[in-house]
Simulated assay, not measured.
Amino acid sequence: MIDREIESLEEFDHVIEGTGSLNGWRVQSVDLSDRTEALTSAAHETEGAVFLGCRMTPEAMAAIRDGGGLVFPPVPRVPFDPYRGRLYSPEELFEGLSDGGYEATPDARSYAWFQRTKADGDVFSSMLRAVHDDAVSDALDEHLVGARVVGVMGGHKLKRGTDAYAGAARLGRALTRAGHTVATGGGPGAMEAANLGAYAAPFDDGMLSKALEMLAESPSFEPSVGDWAEAAFQVRDGWPGGGASVGIPTWFYGHEPPNAFAQHIAKYFVNAVREDGLLARSNAGVVFLPGAAGTVQEIFDHATPNYYGSRGAPTPMVLVDKAHWTETLPAWPLLTALAQGRPMERRIALVDSVEEAPAALERLTEG
């Protein structure tokens, strides 16, 4: 990971004041409109510097190029920044929700752009998606440095107001209080519940109970994403400053909006990059709640590198709900057959309830 990145105006000023040289630096999505003097000064070198999506005057752009730097200007008329240097926030993705409805938000407009361009064969659109997703991955890696990340997987159709939703929320809270960073697919259902639990972690236990009651008034994102999201923001407004967690959703599944409880959101266009990235970054293990095809796929996506050891030592896998994973969708018998006689055999567990999952995860980590 390159350590010569500038992602804010404050960082830019610090480098200029400290060294006067921008040689070899990468500057991402910083508004440099008021830094023309610094960029055109003969004392400030730009050899090998790369400016990605930075706003600047034509004079500054010419000076950078004359000094041996590269300038990739902002891309007009797209609803996202392909060169972004930071993860999304819920407020950013849902901006304009109250005034214009969900269709007016950057999240919905980015999905609409994706729908228009994903099959048009335009290499420029393909390039923008690839650059955006790579920038998001870079920001995610920077955010998770040193974190003990536990992934929580589960179905997107799980409704607010159900016992299973409340259980997933308690799981997210317990993992966060134990010092883990909860990472989910960033969407609704079990994913939202786990992110909600992480958000509730700093508060007393009564907060989560009240939040669950409030959210039950809008049990699903169907038929109205707007009402569903507004209910989440009402909870956040009632209890500001909640615990942090990560959501990793995708515009590939446009019918699944991101949830507002993941404080840090890495949203992708390419679902395969998102899926692999979520599981690969779950370095402290993964908890699999009951789900359908997507969750089954995630179980074996995670089992494969554990089986071959391609990511080093196997990481814990805890499947929750014995009946679901042995009868309804019998993934557990196949997983145990794969694990037999291999190092990953000591890193898998099947439990009945979410209350058992944190202890099982801890046991597998130590074993």
Rank of each mutant, 00 (worst) to 15 (best):
V182Q: 04
V225K: 12
A244H: 14
Q234R: 15
Y253R: 08
D237P: 03
A229K: 02
S218V: 13
A216V: 13
A272F: 13
E230L: 13
F261W: 07
V270F: 15
P240G: 10
E192P: 13
Y199K: 08
Q234N: 13
R274L: 02
L208W: 06
G206I: 15
D276G: 12
L279S: 08
L279I: 14
D237Q: 12
A193W: 01
N259L: 00
S224K: 06
S282F: 03
M214A: 13
N195L: 10
S209A: 15
L278K: 01
L278R: 01
A201S: 15
F221E: 06
W228H: 11
A211F: 11
K210W: 14
A232M: 14
V273M: 15
D276M: 11
P258T: 11
A183Y: 05
G185K: 06
P219Y: 08
A262D: 03
E222N: 11
A194E: 03
W239E: 12
D205C: 00
A211I: 07
A262T: 03
G254H: 04
L279K: 03
G241A: 12
E213H: 14
G197A: 02
K267F: 07
G243F: 08
N271Y: 12
D204T: 05
A280H: 07
A198H: 10
G186Q: 09
A190Q: 08
G206S: 15
D276A: 14
N195F: 06
E222W: 08
P257N: 11
E275M: 05
Y268E: 03
F252V: 07
G277K: 06
Y268H: 14
Q263E: 14
F269M: 04
S220N: 05
G277T: 08
Y253W: 15
